[in-house]
Simulated assay, not measured.
Amino acid sequence: MVTPEEHAAHDTAAEKKIISDVEKYGFHVAIIPGDGYSPAFAYTIGLFKAYGYPELICFGLNQDLLHSVLWSGKELLDKQPRPDQCIGYPDFIGDYNVRFLTVDRDWYGYYFGYGIWFNQGIDFPALQIVWPDKQALYPWEEGFNPAWKAGQPLLDRNLDFRFREERNVAVFTTQQVLDGLPILRVIHEADGDWQFLCDTTYVLDDLKIVALEQLTKRDPTINELFQLNYGWQARRVVKAAEWQEEEYAAAEADEEEETAD
């Protein structure tokens, strides 16, 4: 586990690198690796302050390609500071065009961490560069490769449902939650299954299967956990409390089974 001192040292080094790159190149590219569930992504820092351009973000490609796409994006902004969001632009990824979307500021806190630090808040514009599948279809178009959909969240929409899964994906909850008890524990199992529990019962007869969207409508605060990795869980004492995330130990599952017996 990273100590507070190590975390502070990392932040200091990262901030120095960002300032240095902006002074030298006009902007910095922050690359965030994927974790097995959430996709890798990269975003620019400094385009707005240095040039008045929107910052750029792109998801789901390998790190070298993400870096290349953002540099190509900056070169396009040099010629066209306000890209037309209704057309595709070539010369980013092989023979495929990319499209631009305006990022809703409600997404900034999840993806522009150092960008928010550098700009001293969220008062800066941002565009998402979106790539198509091999059939040249984009994620919002019918027929887009479903296997690639989770790798490229669209940051101009879906504020009411942030999860990468489909809205109707089946998840586990309890009858007590459906009867009104708050969700106090969320488990994202290693196999991808989700559990949304009240933490008052582990009796199998109380388990229910519902569509995930049914629970986000009932309790929008669970949207905060849309990036919870496989094999992790989040807990809170009461509904108004902050979620505390931790790895989900198999021993806890065994303990729950013993309690149910």
Rank of each mutant, 00 (worst) to 15 (best):
F27M: 09
E246D: 13
F100N: 01
P4W: 15
N229Q: 11
R218F: 09
T173H: 01
V210D: 01
N119R: 06
V237M: 07
E55M: 03
V69E: 01
N119Y: 12
F172Y: 13
A42F: 05
L204H: 12
A42V: 10
I19F: 07
D123K: 14
Q128L: 03
L127W: 03
I93S: 06
W243R: 06
E141Q: 04
E242N: 14
P90V: 07
K217H: 13
K208Y: 00
K217Q: 14
E252Q: 13
L77Y: 02
E15F: 09
A14D: 02
E252S: 09
Y248Q: 07
E166S: 11
V22A: 12
V98N: 01
D156L: 00
L61T: 04
H10K: 14
Q175W: 06
V98M: 02
R236G: 06
L101K: 08
A13Q: 13
Y138G: 00
K79S: 10
I45E: 02
L159W: 13
I45L: 08
F163A: 03
Y114H: 12
V203H: 09
Y248G: 00
F112G: 01
V238E: 14
N229F: 01
C198L: 01
Q214A: 14
L212T: 00
Y25R: 12
L184R: 13
A8P: 02
V98E: 02
A50W: 07
N158M: 06
F59I: 02
L101W: 01
D64K: 14
Q80T: 15
I18Y: 04
M1W: 12
P182Y: 10
L184H: 04
L159A: 08
P220M: 11
D254T: 06
Q176A: 13
Y110D: 15
E256D: 15
W243S: 08
R164G: 02
G34I: 11
E142T: 07
I222Y: 05
V210E: 08
Q214T: 14
F161V: 07
R167Y: 08
R164S: 09
W71R: 12
F112N: 03
V237N: 11
T102W: 01
N97Y: 08
P81R: 06
L215Y: 02
Y230E: 02
F124S: 03
P220T: 06
L154F: 03
L184M: 11
E255Q: 14
R99A: 05
G34W: 07
I93G: 08
V169A: 10
I32P: 00
P153T: 05
E55A: 05
C86D: 14
I31A: 13
R99C: 10
L197S: 05
L77A: 06
I129E: 03
D11F: 11
P153R: 04
D179L: 13
